[in-house]
Simulated scan of single mutants.
Amino acid sequence: MTSPSPAPLYLAEILDPAWLRPRLYPDQPSLRITGAREIWREENTATKVRVELDLENAAPGTGRTICIKGMIDESGMKWVSSGTSATESHFYAQMAPGLAAAGINVPDCLYTAIDPENGHGLLIMKDMVVEGATFLTALTPYSPDQARDSLAQLARLHVETGAGKPLHDMAFKGITLDRLAAESLIPLDMLQGLLDDPRGAPLAAEVKNAGRLHRSLGALRDCFAGEPTCIVHGDAHAGNLYRKDGAAGIIDWQVVQHGHWAQDVAYHIVAALSVEDRRAHGDALLDVYLAERARLGDPVADHDTARAHFRAAVVYGYYMWGVTRRVRPDIIREFVKRLGLAVTEYRSFELLGV
């Protein structure tokens, strides 16, 4: 029986030709899907699957591989209640076309929907790998020159979604700094246990206090109160980037939110670069971002305040990786080290008065 859901939870239901054909090829009524093969899968909080399709009567140029993303199959569906798949589905339906038109590189989404019964958001995208895109991993070596390119993309995102712009008032209901400050994603005793495990080994004791870390989010929220807001990606490490035709693009919009530009910029510079490169180039890369904002006609007025905001905002990324569990341990350890060391070296807690 064909699933009645607009966003099925099982891959087999998604690949049912009776479900998939009218959603993926509504303008080709004579097209038939005669087979489907999974060729790659990655399971984190969400599951991504690349699928090759066998097609008959397809129009010239019709893509035969797709990428499906959602909380699918047994490994993923237990995370539906987090709301992040619905947030990303909403992003691709309501915001991504406008960002692409403004010169921000995001993947082409062929279909997206949210199941009204369970809140599951499903994405079906073009398979950009066959179009020559390279998707980075969380630990792909990332150079300062590459960071200049991705910071230019973040600057354009922040400018195009600032106050007064049409995309600024888009509503998102998922993870936000305000929500994190009000209530930790996990109990603080659990967070303390995670910081005390091997992920926290390279860090000073004063940055491994779960209560202090969570209080810093409230202080960061208060620090940004009254500041101009924009749409921020919210999870801007190198594993959420791709390169195509020599340019950087951004994927994985599961925690997109209204926020302060420094959330993205501090997280990106500190998480994407090695500790050594961040120490050598971090301040100059912040200047690159600020210069791009000015070039786009939306300068950040006070550079001294901008530097303080940048250094304080590292606590956001540090918390996000401090609570992370469903990612490979080596990735967690590296990001906690990069972000935690920056909290110490930038004196982020002290800047926030916690």
Results as ranks from 00 to 15, higher is better:
residue 201 A to E: 14
residue 70 G to D: 04
residue 211 G to H: 13
residue 131 E to P: 02
residue 275 V to R: 03
residue 333 R to E: 13
residue 195 L to A: 07
residue 140 T to H: 13
residue 227 E to I: 01
residue 309 H to M: 12
residue 277 D to C: 01
residue 28 Q to E: 12
residue 354 V to Q: 02
residue 31 L to P: 04
residue 313 A to M: 10
residue 31 L to H: 06
residue 267 Y to C: 00
residue 12 A to K: 09
residue 336 V to R: 05
residue 22 P to K: 07
residue 306 A to K: 07
residue 273 L to C: 02
residue 333 R to P: 00
residue 295 R to T: 14
residue 21 R to W: 03
residue 121 G to W: 12
residue 266 A to S: 15
residue 13 E to W: 06
residue 101 A to V: 04
residue 48 K to T: 15
residue 6 P to G: 05
residue 136 L to T: 09
residue 157 L to H: 10
residue 201 A to S: 08
residue 339 L to D: 08
residue 183 E to Y: 03
residue 213 L to W: 05
residue 117 E to H: 12
residue 290 L to H: 08
residue 29 P to K: 02
residue 86 A to S: 10
residue 327 V to F: 14
residue 97 P to I: 12
residue 3 S to D: 09
residue 254 Q to V: 06
residue 348 S to L: 03
residue 142 Y to P: 05
residue 61 G to R: 09
residue 322 G to F: 04
residue 191 L to I: 12
residue 338 R to F: 03
residue 22 P to Y: 09
residue 54 D to F: 01
residue 261 W to H: 07
residue 80 V to N: 07
residue 232 V to S: 04
residue 342 A to M: 02
residue 81 S to R: 13
residue 57 N to V: 02
residue 40 W to K: 13
residue 328 R to K: 14
residue 319 Y to D: 11
residue 341 L to K: 08
residue 186 I to Q: 08
residue 192 Q to N: 04
residue 174 G to S: 11
residue 325 R to Q: 15
residue 166 P to E: 10
residue 353 G to I: 08
residue 346 Y to V: 01
residue 66 I to S: 11
residue 195 L to N: 08
residue 232 V to K: 04
residue 297 G to N: 06
residue 162 G to I: 14
residue 59 A to Y: 12
residue 136 L to P: 00
residue 48 K to H: 07
residue 262 A to L: 07
residue 215 R to T: 04
residue 181 A to R: 11
residue 270 V to T: 15
residue 330 D to N: 10
residue 236 A to P: 08
residue 245 D to E: 13
residue 321 W to S: 05
residue 163 A to C: 15
residue 50 R to K: 12
residue 128 M to K: 03
residue 171 A to M: 11
residue 253 W to A: 00
residue 247 A to G: 02
residue 99 L to F: 03
residue 221 R to S: 13
residue 63 G to M: 06
residue 290 L to K: 05
residue 216 S to Y: 06
residue 319 Y to K: 06
residue 74 E to D: 13
residue 259 G to C: 04
residue 183 E to P: 00
residue 250 I to A: 00
residue 22 P to L: 10
residue 32 R to T: 14
residue 222 D to F: 00
residue 192 Q to I: 07
residue 188 L to M: 04
residue 330 D to H: 13
residue 238 A to K: 00
residue 5 S to P: 03
residue 81 S to G: 05
residue 304 D to Y: 01
residue 170 M to I: 15
